[in-house]
Design a protein around this nucleic acid. Structure first.
Length: 645
DNA sequence: CCAGTATCCCTTTTT
DNA sequence: GGGATACTGG
């Protein structure tokens, strides 16, 4: 009994536009896929179709925005066809770059054991460099390290010089122009010396490899016969370059995206990548998916009314063939506290009436907007998962433990050494720097501390640490063995340093559990840097994987691509959403508007906006008392308003 | 030179 | 209302 060809099955399950995209064969293809128009479905069916027709899964490259997205797509493709689809090369641009560079990075001056720095790592390095260079020590107006990281990263992602970025986006720092350029050069130099790579470098090095090493480029080009890129509206220019080089010659490139959902310009994404795709790839076919399968018509009406306020006009209109549903509501409450109570009560009603908690989400502009709600949910005994905001990986105790493992893999990791050493009593930044320099001089491995000169006090204070590293041997120990040894060493320090150590200890046990899954230290460290556990700190990671589907709290950014039966958008207050600092910048305000559009289009059946009547903004000293301007002037029959005070 | 204390700043979104 | 930086005493 043979199965009917998968393409016959498709004809029943796809609409004409989706089918055209799925069956599209050679050449460049741009799919403009509106919210809820079956974008994921289209991509997964196309993967399944190509594999079924005999294409080797390994010669298909699927680049997505998050690892979760690519895993989900490959899982679904496998369900359609068979588990060959799991072998498709997939992941984020950053994880793809990491994989290629571990292999071929030496051709562009990168040691295979390079260390990936996350954002806080980048900031702390900039902090020490600034201090070392004696730059503007008593200068109030000199940018702080977070600002520095933002500025430099922007320059890389937008392919602009430091000078231009300062001129365009940070004019108030013009007087520090020279110092900033010098600092940036020192930063670049330091990274090269110690084989440190930040997120942006991953893309830059990959692009350089593809540009300078024609043979490698040809090899990758030959390997990946078909390339697909999801969320193309949120790629930056380097990413677009990388794609162009990989597909050069063959041009079997399919990109999928939606210009009205571009929400990452703040980190260098360039919506022109998608808009000018037909010019960059002449002869490109363009397919628009405009039928929305997700939301009831009143939700789409509201979403369209929101996006209609944009100055820029977008490329498509969404329509739906669904039955009628409820009109979205804006509820004004007296205070933040009332807002939380209202939401908790509604959620309680929904759950009681049989809605699975996992089908409900509360969305907000910024991670901290949900703090009060989290407390009230706790009191009401409703458990939840939170996406976005403060990350598991950003917690000090997690970073402390990881630092000890990172120097085993790359003994040149100056950031981790500094962290490890300053944890010790009577060792500060100065002493740590000196010890690190001495180790570098003798080109030591992670046991270097035992081979350098130290005074009596240093010998005393580093005693336990030296013993720890003497015991750690990556050649004979597993990742989790080493993790356990570090834990044993670190626990006394944890207890001394943090008054909430029981909670933190549980986090570390979770970390050990994650290590169990990794045979290789390198893979573990790379994943922790590029694709860390996605939920926030206070979620219990072990239950995150369990079958119990829980209520979701999420930033709008982290909600991208997801959908729920009922969506609450809290803090729909002007100055919160849109955020205060976007108010007088047209471009940023327009991005906030698209963000609101993304939030609204996550809802299938029921959409509620919440707005406390007033709130005090500490940063500006302003009183916020007006609902989001994005919901203003929308007719009553599209947005139903009422107050509960 | 470390570590504890005073003071100032601003508070988005993420790989 | 908190985190980072600057200052100062030991």
């Amino acid at each position: 009994m043979t199965r009917s060809p998968i393409s016959d099955q498709f004809k029943k399950e796809l609409n004409p536009a989706q089918l055209e995209a799925v069956m599209f064969d050679q050449g460049p293809l741009l799919v403009i896929a509106g919210a809820g128009s079956g974008k994921t479905r289209t991509l997964t069916y196309r993967v399944a179709r190509l594999v079924e027709e005999g294409l080797s899964p390994a010669s298909l490259l699927l680049l997505t925005f998050t690892r979760k997205a690519s895993q989900e797509m490959l899982r679904r493709a496998s369900a359609l066809l068979d588990d060959r689809c799991e072998k498709v090369a997939g992941g984020t641009f950053h994880s793809f770059a990491n994989m290629v560079l571990r292999r071929h990075g030496s051709l562009v001056g990168l040691d295979p054991s390079f260390t990936i720095m996350d954002r806080p790592d980048m900031e702390s390095l900039l902090g020490t460099l600034r201090k070392d260079m004696g730059l503007a020590p008593n200068e109030r107006t000199f940018p702080r390290k977070q600002t520095l990281a933002g500025l430099f990263s922007r320059s890389v992602n937008k392919l602009k010089t430091i000078e231009d970025v300062i001129f365009d986006d940070y004019p108030h720092f013009s007087r520090h122009m020279d110092a900033l350029v010098t600092l940036y050069e020192a930063y670049v130099h330091h990274k090269q010396t110690y084989q440190l790579v930040d997120y942006d470098d991953l893309l830059v090095y990959l692009n350089r490899l593809l540009t300078e090493q024609e043979e490698i480029r040809r090899r990758l080009c030959g390997l990946y016969q078909y390339v697909m890129v999801d969320e193309y509206q949120d790629t930056n220019r380097i990413q677009a370059d990388i794609v162009r080089r990989i597909v050069e010659g063959r041009n079997n490139i399919m990109v999928v995206g939606d210009d009205s959902q571009s929400i990452y310009a703040f980190r260098g994404a360039d919506v022109n990548n998608i808009l000018s795709f037909p010019e960059i790839y002449p002869g490109a076919t363009v397919i628009k998916l405009e039928e929305n399968y997700r939301s009831v018509p009143p939700i789409l009406d509201l979403a369209n009314a929101v996006i209609d306020k944009a100055r820029h006009k977008y490329t498509k209109n969404l329509f739906s063939n669904k039955r009628q549903g409820m009109v979205p509501t804006l509820v004004c409450t007296l205070s933040e506290n009332e807002q939380s109570r209202f939401v908790v009560e509604k959620i309680h009603e929904l759950i009681t009436s049989g809605v699975d908690p996992g089908r409900i989400a509360v969305l907000f502009r910024a991670g901290f907007h949900s703090f009060d709600l989290e407390i009230q949910l706790g009191k009401a005994g409703i458990s939840f998962v939170k996406y976005g905001g403060f990350k598991f990986m950003d917690a000090a105790h997690i970073k402390d433990v990881l630092a000890h493992l990172k120097v085993i893999h790359n003994p040149g990791d100056s950031i981790s050494w500094l962290r490890i050493l300053t944890l010790l009593n009577h060792v500060g930044a100065k002493t740590a720097g000196r010890l690190f320099d001495s180790m570098k001089k003798i080109d030591a491995d992670h046991r270097g501390l035992s081979h350098i000169d130290m005074n009596q006090s240093q010998l005393e204070h580093t005693k336990r640490l030296r013993a720890l590293f003497a015991d750690l041997d990556p050649a004979v120990m597993t990742v989790v063995d080493m993790g356990e040894a570090v834990m044993e060493y670190y626990l006394p320090m944890l207890e001394e340093k943090f008054d909430d150590h029981p909670k933190r200890k549980r986090d570390l046990e979770q970390l050990l559990a994650i290590m169990e899954g990794y045979p290789e230290l390198e893979q573990f460290l790379s994943d922790m840097a590029i694709e860390p556990p996605s939920t926030s700190l206070d979620n219990n990671l072990s239950t995150a994987h369990s079958d119990i589907r829980r209520l979701v709290l999420s930033t709008v950014h982290s909600a991208k691509g997801l959908e729920w039966h009922t969506v609450f958008v809290i803090w729909a207050l002007d100055g919160r959403f849109p955020s205060m600092q976007a108010l007088n910048k047209d471009k940023e305000l327009e991005e906030e508007l698209r963000l609101m559009y993304v939030a609204a289009t996550r809802a299938k059946e029921h959409l509620l906006f919440l707005c406390p009547a007033q709130a005090f903004d500490r940063a500006t000293g302003m009183l916020l008392n007006r609902p989001s301007r994005f919901l203003e002037d929308i007719p009553e029959d599209i947005l139903n308003r009422h107050s509960v005070w």
